[in-house]
Design a protein around this nucleic acid. Structure first.
Lengths: 226, 226
DNA sequence: CTTGACACAGAACAGGCGTTCGAGTATTAT
DNA sequence: ATAATACTCGAACGCCTGTTCTGTGTCAAG
């Protein structure tokens, strides 16, 4: 006789999607989503089905639930990590606001909804040092870097960059945050969008340009069909 | 003409009480309280009054609010600390569960709802090293240490203790956590409750006794009348 | 084929909870 | 005293949200 197993072993795609959404939503709103919100963003038309999955995720220990309490769910940290390591997601990055940078001891302790797991094998060997942090892109203001709303960019904190590297910069003169390819030129800097149809930003030497970090990886949660 | 000031300068006692309750509740339940719950625990009979204070706390920047969203409030970190320092509250301590101990880099970054401010002047000079952490007592199982439900104990992590010191111990044999005065005796250990009417716990050398830390301070938020 | 576990939809219910309104009391300024 | 401001209460409204129930289609085991 067979043991009772889930149809698709491990977490189904929908489980994963819900888990991801909870983490993403929590990061943006500072509080968990409601059942209906989960349904909308995960293409589940019935609240009962969401509840159905939530129950499973609770049984499998991926989340905790406070029944009867609005948005009473939270991610637990027991997603067993194999040969991968966690990168803390310090917050969201959007055009109009400064970039949150890793302060002191941000590394070391972070909650599951505030981090992503990266397979070490996917990581450039030189960046293995755990001095990395991540940001979730919010809004469509970064599309010129071929980065979409909701994407997660993994950065290595640095104040300098070499030509051709994609960097996260804070333009204090324009009060703007952006992701661009960095090129130092004779009379200033050129910030080249990844999207070749868009014009670069030219900066004079005098204009303030704060490099916050360089992008070492971009993670995009692809929706399969919608 | 006078400037418009609050009746009692700075935060009124009720403001403080609400702030404390939110922090305490959040720690226990992992999510913020509802307006009605705040009212009950702060002796405010009307939800509108709680809302009234919450609005003020939001304006003064002590909390953030997500209107319309259930329990949509959270503490912000801008409680200016003078000559006092913050101690992270790692969690709750209760009889049936192991004690959360400070792991690696728990110190350094912690959210306001997870910490308390201690006036340096109140602190024994020798403990000034910021290697301290705090736990919120949950349940009445610690009353034998003259500690009540909701109290916050500040601990210094250590594995050893001298006779007469109050320590937080984990008795793995009994699967129990407790706060007691510690005495080493010839054939084992004696854990003496602070309440003299209660019997001490006698332990043989063979029984496992894990000292997690010693109590350096107890903070009790006194309700004035109830 | 039948059965039953599983995945899903949709509707309805009921309670939780933020909001708002009307009104009353206390404190302070003029 | 009078008015303005701060504070408090209680009740009602209505949306938000978790729960529950009924019904459907799928798929593998017996």
């Amino acid at each position: 006789m067979m043991m009772m197993v889930r149809k698709s072993k491990g977490l189904g795609e929908r489980h994963q999607r819900i888990l991801d959404f909870i983490a993403s939503y929590q990061r943006e709103h500072k509080h968990p989503p409601s059942i209906r919100e989960i349904g909308e963003h995960c293409n589940i038309s019935s609240t009962s089905v969401v509840n159905y999955y939530l129950d499973q995720l609770e049984k499998t220990g991926h989340i905790e639930r406070d029944r009867k309490i609005s948005r009473g769910m939270r991610l637990t940290g027991n997603t067993p990590l194999g040969d991968m390591f966690r990168v803390p997601i310090l917050g969201v990055i959007q055009a109009g606001e400064p970039i949150p940078v890793p302060t002191n001891a941000d590394f070391g302790s972070f909650t599951p909804e505030d981090s992503v797991e990266i397979a070490t094998s996917l990581m450039p060997a030189k960046e293995k040092g755990k001095e990395l942090f991540a940001l979730q892109v919010q809004g469509d203001s970064m599309i010129d870097a071929m980065i979409n709303d909701g994407d997660i960019v993994i950065l290595k904190p640095t104040q300098e960059a070499r030509n051709g590297e994609m960097v996260a910069v804070w333009l204090s003169d324009r009060n703007e945050t952006t992701l661009k390819y960095y090129y130092k030129e004779k009379d200033g800097y050129r910030l080249q969008p990844a999207n070749p149809t868009m014009k670069p930003i030219m900066l004079k030497k005098t204009e303030a340009l704060e490099i916050k970090g360089k992008v070492v990886m971009v993670i995009r949660k692809v929706e399969r069909y919608n």
